[in-house]
Design a protein around this nucleic acid. Sequence first.
DNA 1: ATGAAAGCGCTAACAC
DNA 2: GTGTTAGCGCTTTCAT
Lengths: 310, 310
Amino acid sequence: MSRVLRNRGSFSTQVQQSVMAATQALNYMPNRIAGTLASMTSDLVGIIVPSVGNAAMPDVLAGALGILEERGVQSIIGATNFDPLQEERLIDELLSWRPRGILLAGIEHTERVKNILKNSRTRVVELMDTDGAGIQAVVGFSHRQAGRKSAEHLLEKNYRRIGYVGHSISTDLRAGKRLDGFRSALTDNGIALAAEEVGTRYNSSFEAGRNGLANLLNNGTKLDAVYFSSDNLAIGAYFYCLEKGISVPGDLALFGFNGLAISGLIPHPLSTIRSPRNLIGQTGARLLLEETPQVQVVDLGFELIEGSTS
Amino acid sequence: MSRVLRNRGSFSTQVQQSVMAATQALNYMPNRIAGTLASMTSDLVGIIVPSVGNAAMPDVLAGALGILEERGVQSIIGATNFDPLQEERLIDELLSWRPRGILLAGIEHTERVKNILKNSRTRVVELMDTDGAGIQAVVGFSHRQAGRKSAEHLLEKNYRRIGYVGHSISTDLRAGKRLDGFRSALTDNGIALAAEEVGTRYNSSFEAGRNGLANLLNNGTKLDAVYFSSDNLAIGAYFYCLEKGISVPGDLALFGFNGLAISGLIPHPLSTIRSPRNLIGQTGARLLLEETPQVQVVDLGFELIEGSTS
DNA sequence: ATGAAAGCGCTAACAC
DNA sequence: GTGTTAGCGCTTTCAT
């Protein structure tokens, strides 16, 4: 009987015994589909990310999954490949599973998605980005501020001829916001980006960084620092410098974003910005499961790591 | 009415019109929980991996998710953290959702898991590892062979004093199999591993490789090559060599495993073994969805990449 | 071509 | 403390 299996309501030990025996004998396996339908509350949450491979995501996912699994909730994970329409499709399908909540990477979505989500009573927590209005709760940090901070650091260090190398900026909106912030800090100090290079078709970000820097340098503009849309690009570029005998940071300073483990272990630890990715995932998951739905934004900030490439 | 919504059975355009109108007006959203319960067939699959951050996993996941999403099936993903009991727990919970199938990383599971899965009629595809008996279908390659091949390569190159640096070998069974294969090839040639170092408590594999190599070298054993349990370890060690002025491969050869993008871009492209991770994910997903359940093992092989660290 | 009805395996509410 | 029953929102089958 349902009561003993779920340990709710009241029953005698005697009944418990026999029920236990029966479930063992019959090899009983609960059916959550039926349970969820009957109770109208599920232990499912949806998680939608741009891509499971995207440098920052594994940490965020690991953080969220950790919390979710320990509370016995299952996660349906979907990847949008940075395509808003794919996101819309995934959310539609997700909603048809009546999840307890949805964890979304980023705060940019199609209008339809925003409306649907606002009108549905599933909890929604948006992750990673606090630059803009969220649907219900958002947990992350300001990419615009991260960009600004990066520029300010470079300016303090007296770099003036600064270039940018990015990767798929039209689709990676967060990278776009960082660049915006970076640019505006430069503008505030009366200088402009000396050159920029945005490659889109590379096999890896390392390659994008490497080739991006090569192109930038071959264009003839004289640069003393380059800002990259992420650590991986910066690392690819760093190796290019090693290979070409470009002294870092003497000839050229390099600045990344993400604060990946490897960035601290290359011969010149990379100057970069690290965000609390795992914590963002954890916090998002906790918020999602919280009893009291609360409209709020949790800014977990970021940290500038001064390595030796700047 | 159900027939027009799912475009099955027969109905007139007139009825179709009115149903469409009604769904629009009422903002109808299908309920797959109810649908699944009624039809007793679901569009859910479960995916269980050791960790979403584990170097090889994002590619496998991306491959699998790609196929799965394009066929409109949702994925419940769980991470075991290399803990067989956690895997057992996850599988129990997964099964209660009556998934269409389960994708499992690896072929080592608790006896209970194997029995449950054999007796359930959910499709099971085990990924990554073909060294041993699978439950139903397995897609991957032989880690033992990969290890052998690595050793043979090093021996051909005339390295004789060979060390090993690994990371969490007791939990990462696949790494253990590679080491086994590596060892046996060495033994076949009458030599033994000169030294080995297995660190477990590092923040990252890069660090494990770096410190592992440092320890190995400090122990005084003279080595001319080191085999690492993965590229990340080897890369961490490579940077250590750069820093200490150890010439690679002159003083010391380095050999990794995985064939990550970054490994090909460091100043000395890493000698390593690359497996078709994305393809393994794709193939696994396809097999899982196939109509005709077929007991089989699909060995997708691997490729030895001769870089310049050996 | 279409309406009606019987479940799917549970949970929650109600009676005793 | 324990047995019973009415749904949950669909799919499927059976009449019509």
